[in-house]
Design a protein around this nucleic acid. Sequence first.
DNA 1: ATCCATCAACTGGTATACACTTTTTGTCGG
DNA 2: CCGACAAAAAGTGTATACCAGTTGATGGAT
Lengths: 235, 235
Amino acid sequence: MTNETTRDGAKDGATQSAVETAYHRIRHLILTGEMRSGDKLLENQLAAAIGVSRTPIREALNRLNAEGLVVLERYRRGIVADFSLDDAVEIFRLRAILEGHATSRAATRISQADLRRLEELERLMETQFEELGWNEHLEGFDKLNGEFHAVIAAAAESPRLEKILASSLELPASIFNRYSEPVEVRTRRTHAQHREILAALKARNPEWAQAAMNAHLFSLLPSASGSLEHEDGAE
Amino acid sequence: MTNETTRDGAKDGATQSAVETAYHRIRHLILTGEMRSGDKLLENQLAAAIGVSRTPIREALNRLNAEGLVVLERYRRGIVADFSLDDAVEIFRLRAILEGHATSRAATRISQADLRRLEELERLMETQFEELGWNEHLEGFDKLNGEFHAVIAAAAESPRLEKILASSLELPASIFNRYSEPVEVRTRRTHAQHREILAALKARNPEWAQAAMNAHLFSLLPSASGSLEHEDGAE
DNA sequence: ATCCATCAACTGGTATACACTTTTTGTCGG
DNA sequence: CCGACAAAAAGTGTATACCAGTTGATGGAT
């Protein structure tokens, strides 16, 4: 053989495995809110929908269970995890601690290329915000914002820290939006905070960078006063 | 009627699943040092040794991979992860941050029963240390010490924090012993530090408790001076 | 009518068989 | 003797079949 005929899927580059496919698909369903808390995750149904067998589905569900997005109990149907206000507060508190630490480390380690990338990302976020409305912008914003934080986490050069931030401390956007302030209010502030974090990193000032990141995250934290009780049944 | 005849294994209480069995067995092999860094983890071989099929073995290996104890690459044999000095330092730094926070929270939340349990555990550790020699005591100490830290982590009432501490920041004892001070030196200090943490918790003083835990963990951290370069090729 | 036992359908748990990739090993040519 | 190539061996990835436990409905007894 010798001529490289990949005889099946023929995605020449990297045919990602079935479990990767399943994992990302299901994770996306949950994080975007297409599946809501309590929805049933039936292995057969998911297998049919995604087009693989039950085996990779099970591996994917186990990973999501470990990450806390899915609840699995023995012989019981898997369901999408429920996130209470307390859960949201806990996640943001831990993110503040760990991402603050990561930002502090990043301040003395981040490369010029990564700094330029961060500037680029923030510029894109602000540009798209101006050009598109809120609704059009939202999904793109989440992606750009995610990369912004991911670049900083990677620059901390602490692989376990990076992994924890990426896998154990995610909150579905639908839940986040329920508990946080409305987007119009929070995102204008977010841009200013991102710029401050960037300035602190460029100044190579760990304490400032950490404090700015902490301020950013705590500002997103649901107002701890238990005033928000709107159980919208809408939709 | 339904008399409760469990018709197979007959462990009346909770017959733990095959993947639980496999997970704990393999994890134990790694944490105790029975398997060393770089050792191959062959699914068939493990399946035969543990007495289950490959399926639960694969689930167990995936969990251990997520925890960082095992390295899996597609189509490649799994191996026991390698922990460099840098890895050990990283783990202890993150443990200090997170377990310090947990201890701070625990100070205002821990129950009287848990406090008594901690006293009991510390008393046992010291008693067994006096009665048995070092070698006899070691495995028992690890177990008691593990529970000591686990009780505090649980008392913080932050389930994600507890899970991260229990799953993502473990270091195999064999590696720990290679990088840390000799047991005789470190454990006498450990007892004093445990007593101080306990005192701070009983005093309900979060700052003191956090600082004491931080001191405890940083004292176990390998001496950051890069003096230890012994690449033993022995065995 | 309500409650409980029982049973059937459903769902998850495990084992096994097959497909694809890597790794090893043996052979040939230099 | 060494390196490149090729075929066989070994190992992982996925699919499927089968087993075990749960769930919920059904029917009878109270």
